[in-house]
Each structure stands twice: as C-alpha cells, then as structure tokens.
C-alpha cells in the first residue's frame, strides 16, 4: 500500500536487494551444502593427494581466474544495486518546490516545518508561524499536540535538536534524519494515505528515549486548512 512516496521507493529498492540476495544465497549456500555432503569423510574415501601434512608447507592451490570471476560477478550485481540506490538517494536528497496552500485570503502556507528534538519530545513549528509550537510530547493530550500535514503535498522538514543527538523518524513513511544541535537537516516526503502515523526517536538519547513518540496526522487538504486556521493562525 502506498503510504508515502519514500516508503514506495524504499519497498521497491528493498525488494530489489532481497531478490538478488536470495539468488546469491541460493548459489553460495547450495554450493556449500553440496560440497559438505558430497565430500564428507566416509569410510573408504581416500586422502586427497595434496592433503596438508606436518613437516611440509601445503602445496599452492587455486586459480587467479576464480578470484577474478568472483570479483567480476559481484561487481555486476553490486553495480545494479548501486545504480538503484543512487536513483533513490537523488530523490531523497532533492528539495521539492514549496507548496502554496491558501489558508485564508491573507495567509498562505508553504509546507515547511521546523522539527526540534528535546529530551524527550519533539516540537514542531510551521514556517511563518514560529510562535505556535506544537509539542509532540507523549503525555500531551490537547488539540495542539497534533502534528498535522496535508495529504499529497510535498512536506519539507528541517530537523534539529535543542540538546543531545536524536534521530527523527516517521516509521511508516521510511523517512529519517539525524537531529543534533547546531545543525539543521533537511528531509521531505509526500504522504499519500490519510491517517495517524507514529514518529519515534531512533538514536539513544537518554532514559526517555523509548517513549519519545509523537503522532503525525495526515489530513485531506480541506480539513488541514480549517485545522490550520483554528490552531495555528488564530
């Protein structure tokens, strides 16, 4: 199911890796198992002619062509994976144009949010409205705790931290960014399905790390506009 553009992209790439991994594993493990079964010591099997024995250096064995073949085949597979990864990372690290949502006749919003990590909660500031801080604290119960974004828009996040090293991750969207003091990291996503999704911290930041959880609420555009009007603009 398409939850966000980044998640779709991740799934495709992940399965590309996994198909190739399975193919490689079948070959390698197959070879290993066959050799172990076929060449195990049975009564009557004779000592190989080049068996290493005490008092002699073992004779050299093996061809350069095996090493070359191994490296070449691996390089081909890895090149496919690298090309796939580079395509995805170009998307991840691109910066989409700001949106232009008409909140009211005088107010527009550009889909940019400043996310700040604290021990142990996140807060969210919508660009242009720095005074309305939404805290995604786990214990937060009021309406202002909801971090809402509009559906099917390119949402651009600037992520930083007010104290220690955190990592901001929206689990289902497959987006993540380091949050550390003195630096702002940029990530973006396009949420395609309406609903609530969990935000969790992915870098150990102290005793409250496991519960440094917040929720992101993906709304249809109309609902977002009225929510924005009532909670952010005021």
């Amino acid at each position: 199911m398409a939850i966000s553009n980044m998640q779709v992209q991740f799934d495709n790439l992940f399965w590309l890796f996994t198909y190739l991994a399975i193919a490689v594993s079948v070959v390698v493990f197959g070879l290993m198992v066959i050799f172990i079964i076929k060449y195990r010591d049975r009564s009557g099997s004779s000592e190989p002619h080049d068996a290493p024995i005490l008092g002699h250096l073992p004779v050299a064995r093996g061809h350069a062509r095996t090493a070359i073949l191994t490296v070449s085949l691996s390089t081909i597979i890895l090149t496919v994976l690298i090309i796939g990864s580079f395509g995805s990372i170009d998307t991840i690290l691109s910066s989409p144009a700001p949106c232009n949502i008409q909140i009211s006749h005088s107010v527009t919003y550009n889909c940019s949010v400043l996310v700040t990590g604290h021990r142990f909660y996140w807060d969210f500031n919508y660009a242009g409205f720095p005074n309305r801080t939404i805290t995604g604290a786990p214990s937060c119960q009021q309406a202002i705790c909801i971090f809402a974004v509009p559906q099917s828009e390119d949402i651009r996040l600037n992520v930083t931290s007010a104290d220690v090293f955190h990592n901001f991750g929206v689990i289902a969207f497959k987006v993540k960014a380091d949050a550390y003091p003195g630096h702002v990291n940029f990530i973006w996503f396009n949420a395609e399905t309406i609903g609530n999704y969990t935000i969790q911290c992915y870098e150990l930041c102290g005793p409250g790390h496991a519960t440094m959880i917040a929720t992101i609420d993906v709304m249809p555009l109309g609902q977002f506009v009225s929510w924005f009007n009532s909670t952010i603009v005021q």
């Binding site: 790439l13 992940f14 991994a21 991750g169």
Partner: peptide, 18 residues
C-alpha cells in the same frame, strides 16, 4: 549480504538505528 543493504545510503535512510 545484509551489510550491503546498509551500505546503500538510500536503504540506510530507513534502516538506520533499527
């Protein structure tokens, strides 16, 4: 093999810290 997953910066954006 799974290390190669993590070497891919694109996958690492999801797998980091998991």
């Amino acid at each position: 093999i799974t290390g190669v997953y993590l070497a891919s910066v694109a996958l690492d954006y999801a797998l980091r810290g998991t």
